[in-house]
């Protein structure tokens, strides 16, 4: 397998985890309840740990001397490969949790597929991450049911979030040439298969949550994986990268 392709694919995996981790960290100390605050930051921590594993491997494959910190702090927005869903603002708690649930469902099936990757290092990282990712999904699914099947107010807000974020869900399964090459090499799982698992799980949770699922064939936004981002990512990076930009190489 072409090393450069695997490097690019690893950036996608790492960038998704890092940008969502950063978004969740922004809620540290601001969660709607103590338990939620701890959960958000613990999920952020798990994702950050996974980011480090993906980036370290990416840096080694690239062989250009970039380590995990260089990849996180010294790339600009157009060099990030995360899906647009993950850079969307935290909004209200329904927005935060619907974003999380869409991602967690995809992440679970993706990571589960990656445990059988032909790349042994990717399979090992996936095996390590799978239990964390399953736990995240159980939690976000529970919360979607609680919010959707809660009060009239929480139901309305959650339904609005479900519809507003829906157009960002398709990008996770929209496989471009790079993704296809990964599937062909036995490194990544098939996108159509992930999508059918995703639709089934999201559908069953929405049913329990009394939420209406938007049409599966709705128009979907894309571009994040190729480096075309919304304006939100620039603000996320400005906050996350400030210190290393202002004081390059600063350490604790």
């Amino acid at each position: 397998m072409d090393k450069h392709n695997t490097f690019e694919y690893l950036l996608r995996l790492g960038d998704n985890a890092l940008i969502l981790s950063q978004r969740l960290s922004q809620l540290c100390g601001k969660g709607p309840a103590m338990e939620e605050d701890m959960a958000l930051t613990n999920v952020a921590l798990d994702l950050l740990g996974q980011t480090r594993l993906w980036y370290s491997y990416a840096g080694e494959l690239e062989g250009a001397g970039r380590d995990e910190d260089a990849l996180a702090f010294r790339r600009d927005a157009h060099e990030f490969r995360n899906c647009l869903l993950l850079e969307q603002p935290n909004g209200n708690y329904a927005d935060t949790m619907v974003r999380q649930f869409y991602f967690d469902t995809w992440h679970y099936f993706l990571i589960e597929g990656l445990t059988r990757s032909s790349d042994a290092r990717i399979a090992a990282i996936a095996e390590k991450s799978l239990k964390e990712v399953s736990y995240h999904l159980r939690r976000s699914g529970d919360l979607i049911v609680r919010l959707g099947d809660g009060t009239e107010f929480s139901h309305a807000r959650t339904q609005t979030a479900v519809e507003a974020l829906w157009m960002y869900s398709g990008e996770m399964f929209a496989y471009d040439g790079l993704d296809q090459a990964m599937v062909a090499a036995g490194i990544a799982p098939d996108g159509a298969e992930l999508r059918s698992h995703w639709l089934a799980h999201v559908g069953s949770i929405f049913k329990e949550a009394t939420l209406t699922m938007p049409p599966a064939d709705a128009w979907m936004q894309s571009g994040g994986k190729q480096g075309r981002h919304s304006e939100h990512l620039g603000y996320v990076l400005a906050e996350m990268q400030f210190l290393q930009r202002a004081y390059p190489g600063a350490t604790w």
Partner: peptide, 8 residues
């Protein structure tokens, strides 16, 4: 296709 690890 239900995955027990994520089943409620």
């Amino acid at each position: 296709s239900a995955h027990a690890a994520i089943s409620r």
